[in-house]
Write a protein that binds this DNA or RNA. Structure first.
Lengths: 307, 307
DNA sequence: TATTTTGTTAGGTAAAACCTATTTAACTAC
DNA sequence: GTAGTTAAATAGGTTTTACCTAACAAAATA
């Protein structure tokens, strides 16, 4: 692209030295080269920039404003280079993560804090989406990575994080509240289950459980957030089906709610860190996955299923 | 200079289209060229910018910040180009003028106003200096032009503007105040003349007159501005020697001062617009000189010597 | 008039940027 | 699981251009 950056450098060298020969020395070319390139620059810009003569080289008024702007262009380029260089080692820059809304708010704040402490230049931009949107965003490049169930997004590469248990929550006066032991599917027979709206992973799990246990899944009271269905459960309209991490973080401390783990092979959710196989951020993913696992390790063990 | 502006353009084309082939089309090169240049860009910056694959081209986090900065660099370059183009026709930009302090304040404000009305993009930067500094500044390129006496700065090319008459001013009770006719040198014999400090053109003229008329030039009360020596003259300590334009603009309306023209071939000052012969601003100089002459034409004719 | 200083012009070379054609890689479809 | 499709990468050759050395022209000084 004309003018060339090099031509601008030449112009500045002449501006600073006031003499072609000295300027040529400074930019490590011969004086004729400089002369030719400056002529070309003037031709391209359609303006006389330099007044030549025995006195050396003097800038014209236009030459002065061009030189000033040239300085700025070169400065910007230097900044670009150093910005690129800053990302050389370790984690840095803005990495975009997609996360299921049933994990993100309860796991990521702490994990981000942990990562930020170790890598101050690192910024994780999180956006909550449902499984289908995460898959699409990952494919298109809207996300660099995502936290979701690996089996739902087969196109991506997965780094397994942990397997959540699934819990059922009821009002304290509910018959289920009589025990704290894990419930069997038989205990749920005929009951009404509450879950998030269509498209959410927890809803998909609740659907499978509902089919197995022969109970209905509420479509009348579809919640939009886990907090919403938790609060519905406290009123006794049904049983909230909640994932382990959320249950430990939010439901356990609610005195108006009783929680019991569901004891069944299908009542689990394997969460992984997902990314495109072609992504060059492999090292970063390992570090981030570690941070997420460490954060998860801080939760009560009941939140997870061993292995 | 690496990276090249063209490489940045290529990066942006890929950023916008998300596909090498489409990007190549947009920047009018073939896909392999693009591929090679981007590889080189990555090598130069030492960072992976693009994640390639069947899905097309997706930017890495570092790639995103580099692309953002690239946009800025190219934008700055566009601005540089249009800045250069803006000076193509007529007067524009910041032209630096040097002027004798005995002309500048009394002639230039009006001339600048006139020029600015005709050429809105034009800015004249004026700096007042004595003859020697004007000569040096013109040679070094500190000034694009100067208003001074051509014969004093022979190295420069001159465009004659006008020839000022020289006046002598006295207190109203001075014997010289008896008439309004031009004074001869005989009238000044034995008197004390007041002028600016050493190095000023008006002082040089006063010195010649003092030598011819056999009178002293005050070194005890050397003024630094024409206003200062005018005020000294009103106190009766001596006769102020003042140039025509200043006399018309400032001295004439002072009721405590009588002014008379000096009638002698040496009592004149030829002022020219001076510039380096090599300066490419020849067209501009003609326009500026015209504006100065027109401004001068607005003064009373006594300020000047015909021819 | 000779000399020095400063930038320009000429002619040739080596590096780069590009091109066409081909190859590789990773999905998709049958 | 093979064939087809759609991306980008590689190979080999051509053109452009940035650069060099050498010779030249202009202007100022000795």
């Amino acid at each position: 692209m004309r003018p060339t950056l090099r031509q601008l450098q030449y112009l500045l060298a002449i501006t600073d030295t006031g003499r072609y020969a000295d300027a040529a020395l400074r930019v490590n070319v011969t004086q004729p080269t400089l002369s030719e390139q400056i002529n070309q620059l003037e031709l391209e810009l359609g303006a006389r920039l330099i007044e030549r003569g025995r006195h050396g080289a003097i800038l014209t008024p236009i030459g002065r404003v061009v030189a000033e702007r040239a300085r700025r262009v070169l400065q910007d380029m230097e900044e670009l280079k150093s910005a690129a260089r800053s990302g050389e080692d370790g984690l840095s820059g803005r990495v975009r993560m997609g996360a299921l809304p049933s994990v993100g708010p309860y796991l990521l704040p702490e994990a981000i804090k942990r990562l930020h402490a170790a890598y101050p230049d690192f910024r994780l931009m999180v956006r909550e989406e449902r499984t289908a949107e995460l898959a699409a965003g990952l494919a298109e490049g809207t996300f660099d990575m995502a936290i979701a169930t690996a089996s739902d997004i087969s196109a991506a590469q997965a780094d397994h994080l942990f397997t959540e248990s699934v819990w059922v929550c009821s009002a304290p006066n509910d018959p289920l509240a009589a025990s704290r032991e894990p419930v069997t599917l038989a205990d749920l027979a005929g009951r009404e289950l509450l879950s998030l709206g269509r498209g959410h992973k927890v809803t998909a799990i609740a659907q499978v459980i509902a089919a197995e246990a022969d109970c209905r899944l509420s479509s009348e009271y579809e919640g939009t957030s886990l907090d919403a269905i938790r609060l519905m459960a406290t009123t006794g309209v049904g049983l909230a089906v909640l994932p382990g991490i959320y249950t430990m973080r939010e439901a356990l401390r609610d005195p108006d709610l009783m929680v019991r783990r569901i004891d069944h092979p299908v009542a689990r959710r394997e969460l992984s860190l997902l990314f495109r196989a072609s992504s060059p951020l492999a090292d970063s993913f390992a570090v981030i996955a570690d941070a997420l696992r460490q954060t998860a390790a801080g939760f009560p063990p009941q939140a997870f299923v061993r292995n």
